[in-house]
Deep mutational scan, measured.
Amino acid sequence: MKMAVISEHLGLSWAELARELQFSVEDINRIRVENPNSLLEQSVALLNLWVIREGQNANMENLYTALQSIDRGEIVNMLE
């Protein structure tokens, strides 16, 4: 549920979040190519990849820290 809210509000910031979460330029470009027409779909794809990559370590605290690092703390505030 929280992931959906984050995806809805990320907009163009999804790529900046991807870099903050240590995704490569290739990963970011692949997300763009696979989801060409929708920032929402790109955001969802990023968060899904992050959960798959991090497994047990994919917790909201880590995601909140990354969001705050890219000056998107207002998204965190909405969810708390």
Rank of each mutant, 00 (worst) to 15 (best):
I70R: 05
D71L: 02
P36M: 12
V5G: 03
Q56I: 15
I70A: 02
Q68D: 11
N77E: 11
L40P: 05
A15Q: 09
L39I: 05
R53W: 03
E34C: 07
R30T: 08
T65V: 10
L12K: 10
S69F: 06
N29S: 09
G73C: 07
S43N: 11
L12Y: 11
N57F: 05
K2F: 08
N62E: 09
G11T: 06
N29Q: 12
I70L: 02
L17W: 03
L49H: 08
A4Y: 05
E20L: 05
N59R: 14
L21F: 03
S24C: 06
Q42S: 06
R19M: 13
E80I: 03
E80N: 12
A15S: 14
V76K: 07
V33H: 12
N62G: 14
N29P: 00
N48H: 12
E26T: 14
R19D: 07
I31C: 01
I28T: 05
Y64H: 06
I70G: 00
E41C: 09
L49G: 11
L79R: 04
V51P: 03
A45L: 03
N35E: 14
V5F: 15
A45S: 13
L63D: 02
L40F: 13
S38W: 02
Y64G: 07
D27E: 11
A66W: 00
E20P: 00
Q68V: 11
H9P: 03
A66N: 04
V25L: 11
S7W: 03
R30H: 11
E41G: 11
A15K: 08
L67F: 02
R30Y: 07
Q42G: 00
E34G: 09
R53K: 09
V5E: 06
E26L: 10
R30D: 10
E74M: 00
Y64Q: 03
M3F: 15
V33N: 11
L67Y: 00
A58G: 14
E20S: 10
E20R: 10
N57I: 03
D27L: 05
N59V: 11
N37V: 07
I31Y: 05
S24W: 00
L10G: 00
V25P: 13
E16F: 08
L12R: 12
V51F: 14
E54L: 04
L63G: 01
N48P: 00
I70V: 09
L10E: 00
Y64T: 12
N37H: 06
M60N: 02
E41Y: 07
D27F: 05
V25F: 11
W14V: 03
N35D: 02
A45F: 03
W14E: 02
S43M: 00
A4Q: 12
L46G: 00
E74N: 05
V51G: 13
L49Q: 13
S13W: 04
N29D: 14
E8V: 04
W14C: 00
V33I: 13
N48L: 01
E54K: 07
G55M: 03
M3S: 06
R30M: 12
V44L: 13
N57S: 09
L47D: 02
D27I: 12
E26N: 13
A58E: 09
F23T: 00
P36V: 03
D27P: 01
D71S: 08
I31S: 00
L79H: 09
S7H: 01
W14D: 01
K2E: 15
I70N: 02
L17P: 01
M60Q: 03
I70Q: 01
G73R: 07
G73E: 08
V33M: 13
I70C: 06
M1T: 14
Y64A: 04
R32K: 07
I70D: 01
E41F: 07
S13Q: 06
L39C: 14
E61P: 03
L17D: 00
E41A: 11
E16K: 11
M78T: 14
D27T: 08
Q42M: 09
A58D: 09
S43I: 00
G73W: 07
A15P: 13
A4K: 15
E8N: 12
N37E: 13
A15F: 12
S24I: 04
A15N: 07
L79T: 09
K2D: 04
E74D: 15
R32L: 11
A45M: 09
L10D: 02
N77R: 14
G55P: 03
S69T: 13
V25G: 10
N77T: 14
M78S: 10
T65L: 11
N48T: 04
A66K: 07
I28A: 04
R72E: 03
S43V: 02
V5C: 09
L12E: 04
R19T: 11
E74H: 11
Q42T: 02
S38P: 01
R19S: 10
N48C: 04
E34M: 07
L46P: 01
L21M: 14
K2I: 13
A45H: 07
K2C: 07
G55W: 00
E54D: 07
E20D: 04
L40N: 06
L63N: 02
V5H: 08
D27K: 04
D71N: 13
S24Q: 09
W50I: 01
A18G: 11
P36Q: 15
A45Q: 10
A66Q: 05
E61S: 07
L40E: 13
N57V: 12
D27V: 11
G11W: 01
L46H: 03
R53N: 06
E54C: 09
M60S: 07
Q68E: 11
Q22K: 13
A66E: 01
I28E: 03
E8I: 04
I28Q: 04
S7T: 08
E80A: 11
V76W: 06
V44E: 12
A45K: 10
I31T: 02
I75W: 03
M3W: 07
L47P: 03
S24T: 09
L67C: 02
S7R: 04
N29F: 06
E34V: 07
S69A: 12
N37I: 08
V76T: 08
E54R: 05
N37D: 13
E26C: 11
E8F: 05
G73M: 05
A66D: 01
E26D: 12
Y64L: 09
N35V: 09
E54S: 10
E20Y: 07
S13F: 06
R72H: 10
R72A: 03
L49M: 14
A4I: 15
T65D: 13
S7F: 10
L40Y: 09
L21A: 00
Q56V: 14
S69Q: 10
L17F: 13
I52G: 06
V25R: 12
V76P: 08
L39V: 14
I31K: 00
R72S: 04
Q68K: 15
L17T: 00
L12H: 15
I28W: 02
V76H: 05
R53F: 00
G11I: 02
V5I: 06
L21S: 03
Y64N: 15
N37K: 14
K2P: 03
R53A: 04
D71Y: 06
L21R: 00
N57P: 12
V5L: 14
N57Q: 15
M3V: 13
L39D: 12
E26G: 10
A45R: 10
I75Q: 03
R53E: 04
Q56H: 08
V5W: 14
G55F: 02
L10A: 01
N62T: 15
N48S: 07
L12W: 05
N35Y: 05
Y64P: 02
Q56S: 11
N77A: 14
W50G: 00
H9G: 04
Y64K: 05
N62F: 14
E26V: 08
S69Y: 10
L10M: 02
P36G: 07
A66R: 02
L63A: 02
R72C: 10
S69W: 07
Q68W: 10
N57W: 09
I28N: 01
E54G: 10
L63R: 00
S43F: 00
R32T: 10
V76E: 06
I75V: 11
E61D: 11
W50A: 01
D71E: 14
A58F: 08
I75S: 05
S69D: 12
Y64W: 04
L79W: 04
G73T: 07
E20C: 10
E34D: 09
S69M: 10
V51N: 09
E41R: 14
N62C: 10
L49I: 12
